[in-house]
Structure formats: structure tokens, C-alpha cells
Design a protein around this nucleic acid. Structure first.
Length: 120
DNA sequence: TAGGTGACGCGGT
DNA sequence: CACCGCGCCACCT
């Protein structure tokens, strides 16, 4: 079922560490569909992952925050990140080397096993 | 059914 | 660094 992707995404969201950011591509990869980064954006935009999902921690591969229209108010993503210690440059960029959630291959395997056990 | 869209990513220039 | 083009894929007209 295509429902699986969103279920997985929601679960992974609960494991994105405080004070870190993650890319759309990373999440797609952890969901088991490396080519579906765009679907991650769609999921967040259309609120398919629940209200608890830390969408503000999701940025693109270049380190840039989402567009002004992505959140309720322009600058909300920036302030949310800064509140938890993530530095954001004036041009809305985050230093990935410092703040990206670097999940290991073991993490990916762990998620796969979790999904297998849950049957999603 | 066909074509357009996008909170993406990558490679080329 | 700045563009640009193209591949990608679930959704939406």
C-alpha cells in the first residue's frame, strides 16, 4: 500500500534528534524509497504525518530552509531551529557539516527491521 | 487518459 | 558560486 510511505515517515520523524536537521532525500532513503524525496515534501505540505512531526527540521540538500510559504508565517522555521540551537545564516542556510542528523547505516538497518516487525 | 506541478536532487556549464 | 536542465514520482486537474 502506498500508505506505508507516510506511516514510515511519521515514525522516523519521532527520531529526528533535537537540535539537528535532516534532508528530504535522507528521509526518503530511510523510508526505503531513495527516489521519493519529492513525496516527502508533499507529505509535509499536505499534513500526512501528523501534527507532532518536526517539519521545521527538514531542509533541502544544499542546507537551505524551505520557502517562505511553507510554514504558517515566514521565518517560523528559522526561529524554531534557532530556538533549539541550530545556527541559521542571514540567507536562511544551515551548515550541514555541523547540524545535519548523520544517521548511520546501522540506523537505516534498524529502521528497516522496525518496519518489518510492524508490517509497514 | 494526458498533461501539469512541486517544502527535491544531481550533474553539467 | 550561479544558473540550468533533466530525472524522478505521487498527486491533482
Amino acid at each position: 500500500m502506498s500508505f506505508n510511505f507516510y506511516q514510515r515517515l511519521e515514525l522516523i520523524g519521532k527520531h529526528i534528534p533535537y537540535g539537528h536537521v535532516v534532508t528530504y532525500g535522507q528521509l526518503a532513503l530511510l523510508c526505503g524509497k531513495p527516489k521519493n524525496s519529492r513525496q516527502v515534501g508533499y507529505a509535509l505540505r499536505s499534513d500526512k504525518v501528523g501534527k507532532d512531526f518536526p517539519a521545521y527540521r527538514v531542509i533541502n540538500g544544499q542546507g537551505y530552509l524551505s520557502g517562505a510559504g511553507a510554514f504558517a508565517t515566514p521565518g517560523l522555521q528559522k526561529s524554531m531551529l534557532q530556538k533549539e540551537g541550530v545556527e541559521v545564516s542571514p540567507d536562511n542556510r544551515v551548515e550541514m557539516k555541523q547540524f545535519q542528523w548523520k544517521h548511520t547505516m546501522e540506523d537505516a538497518v534498524w529502521f528497516r527491521e522496525l518496519f518489518r516487525q510492524l508490517g509497514v
